[in-house]
Design a protein around this nucleic acid. Structure first.
Lengths: 412, 412
DNA sequence: ACCGTCCCTGAATCATTGG
DNA sequence: TCCAATGATTCAGGGACGG
């Protein structure tokens, strides 16, 4: 069977045309057992794609899956793997079938694809992950370990040191005769775990085709990278909008795509011609880029019971509670900001919004006199640290005086 | 059956002693089904026999689980829930049993508990999550939605604005006749999702008991918080080292723990007792390890530039900066503490030390007048949250008056 | 009870503005 | 002209509502 093509037809029959022991990876994204119809219109409203997830019974559904799996196993190389993507409503039933076809002992991982999502009014927990089962044909499967960065809290200094066991069998850092630590060989990072946080395909993403249940190319890239090499053959029996094939082409793997919907095949082919892969801003930059607030600022916001805001230079957060039905913006005076600058920024960011209260947290001392006459209705609160600093400056006599003058509540 | 106790014995029999329709939450952490490799394998072509053998034993295992689940269902209230924690090797089989006993329609969530872990040399992905199934007895189950912060990429400024549909059905921001945006109602944050990243064992809390499969108290706290209220009854039929009971006690829920191992029951009881001892003992001996400082308290301490102190009931931290060469103890008023109690505790903890300054952070409103004449040199500072609360209470006219009376710095 | 439709939400992009 | 800031847009999946 010719590779690097997308075939239209029933996947079991098409799979039968593939020679045995020839495929390195089969990626399955079967229609979910959600019992409903999915439909979506593409960007310029020129086409509506839809398909049914309706089956007479779960048994019928599982039988279909089992048949496809059996045929898939036949075409897989000894070193090959299957990745099966499914949703939570039937994942356990599907895994029972996987066990039956591939064997319990060839189960490798339950991969969790987690993502952030818009919320809704559902009673219960917000559903924010999907599961991918990873089975191999034999225990001699191909696997490329990918490495991720060490977590921020890891003490890299220590990791880089060689270790040995002391006389009690305890693991200790190896030292040379001068008592200095020995720096060990290069570390590659932390092996990739089975929890993958990859942004869900955003509604505005250019990569979006309008086909329902479309998966991000980045997800497929990760799968292809860990179990295939350049030139290997990837098969997707339910290829839908063709994400797997796009990924395979991008990573220079051979591919065969199959789908029963003529629309899907057409769409997949056109995507291959014009490959758009969203460079996820979020993944490139990492969350840390976005979470620019210092710990100190976050602590202040938590203290004041406010949400942090990341994308606004004039506003650092909003109180969770509103004032007279209107949100209350909060700004924290920056380290190199005068109080006047801070007020100006907050006012500017509030322009056109009818805030009834704005709060500025003062973090540094200022000659307060300058402020009188300044036209603004911003309310200024001193941070606890600033209040403490002022406290520490006064001397014993002052404290005595304060206590005599009104007791305990004198200092705020 | 008496609550707030840990029973030794077979869980099915003990469950039978519990009255029907009486329990709010059952948390299951059954012994995992780990496949053992039998040495029989090599002998005379016993492959199929061996497979059968395993199959039989997992059947047996699942039957046990099913029986416990049936008995559990009986004791659950109509509004009750079950959380079943299991490892990946048998989770799908167990969920099939859950479907059978509780019904597919009562499946609520597949919770992913993810954590960072030491890497190992295993071929494949690093296993870094466990799954917890959440089923309810009926659709009328009790559920408290928890809220988390917005994502870093969310434009909160915009989210707070009201929207409407224009003539083309497009969603646009609502504006008043002056062209200003209209600010919408209060937001609580994003509903908690089904992916929970909780460190394996909170390194701060010395929970480690050495008992295998011990779960972090934070994980159990989260579960108890979403499906039970204070005073509700929680049952753990495989309670092991008793984390569920510790969490229940901490969150003021009633509990019944059961375990078949006498060692486990002893360990669980001593963990519970330790909590009791540390609560009743005003000496600083072993402040409850489980009652770690809440995030709020830590934020306040960071705010005031202080080190947290864990093992002293009268002192929560010390300022990093000293006052006249002497450390400055800080206490934060507890949620259920009057300001007088707080002062007394702080004074008591300071007894015999020559602190020249002591700081108490007031977190709740008090009739301050009671305090005058109180003999103490503790300095009281209001937390930012309290200051904000007071701000939100005043009305517009007050603000105007304040602004006229002295401008910006009027409110501290 | 069942169906279709509308409304609400918030993550994360694209698009535009402003310096 | 470029980059950063911020305004605008999208749409799945729930509940609610109406027929």
């Amino acid at each position: 069977m010719e590779t690097n093509k997308i075939y239209h037809g029933n996947c079991i029959e098409k799979l039968k045309e593939i020679e045995a022991n020839n495929v390195d990876l089969i990626y399955f994204d079967p229609p979910f057992f959600t019992q409903r119809k999915h439909s979506l219109t593409n960007k310029d409203n020129s086409k509506t794609y839809e398909f049914d997830d309706k089956y007479n019974s779960i048994q019928e559904y599982l039988e279909l899956i089992e048949n496809v799996l059996q045929e898939s196993k036949r075409v897989l190389k000894k070193t090959g793997s299957v990745f099966l993507h499914c949703d939570k409503t039937a994942s356990h039933n599907i895994r029972v079938v996987m066990d039956k076809v591939f064997g319990r002992e060839n189960f490798q991982s339950e991969i969790v694809w987690s993502y952030k999502r818009w919320s809704n009014a559902k009673k219960g927990l917000l559903n924010a992950h999907q599961v991918i089962f990873f089975y191999s044909k034999t225990l001699d499967f191909k696997f490329n370990t990918l490495y991720t960065d060490y977590s921020a809290t890891t003490n890299l200094d220590q990791i880089l040191q060689d270790r040995e066991r002391d006389e009690n069998g305890k693991s200790v850092y190896k030292k040379d005769k001068n008592g200095n630590v020995i720096l060990g060989k290069e570390k590659k990072g932390v092996p990739l775990s089975d929890v993958w946080e990859i942004p869900y395909l955003n509604p505005k993403a250019k990569e979006r085709t309008g086909y329902p249940t479309q998966k991000p190319v980045l997800l497929l890239n990760q799968i292809l990278n860990i179990v295939t090499d350049v030139g290997d053959l990837v098969v997707d029996p339910f290829c839908g909008s063709g994400t797997t094939c796009v990924s395979a082409k991008y990573l220079k793997r051979q591919f065969i795509g199959i789908d029963i919907s003529k629309d899907a095949v057409g769409l997949a082919n056109s995507r291959l011609e014009e490959m758009i892969i969203s460079e996820s801003n979020l993944l490139n930059k990492g969350t840390s880029e976005y979470q620019e607030k210092t710990e100190k600022e976050l602590a202040i916001l938590q203290n004041i019971n406010a949400f942090p805001v990341q994308r606004n230079s004039g506003i650092d957060g909003f109180l969770k509670e509103h004032f007279e039905g209107i949100p209350v913006p909060v700004k924290i005076q920056g380290e190199y900001e005068t109080i006047e600058d801070a007020i100006e920024k907050l006012e500017k960011a509030s322009y056109g919004k009818n805030y009834k209260m704005k709060i500025l947290i003062q973090t540094r001392e200022t000659g307060i006199s300058q402020l009188f006459g300044f036209e603004s209705d911003v309310i200024i609160m001193k941070s606890l640290e600033l209040q403490t600093k002022e406290l520490l400056k006064i001397n014993n006599e002052d404290i005595t005086r304060i206590l005599q003058n009104g007791g305990l509540s004198a200092r705020y």
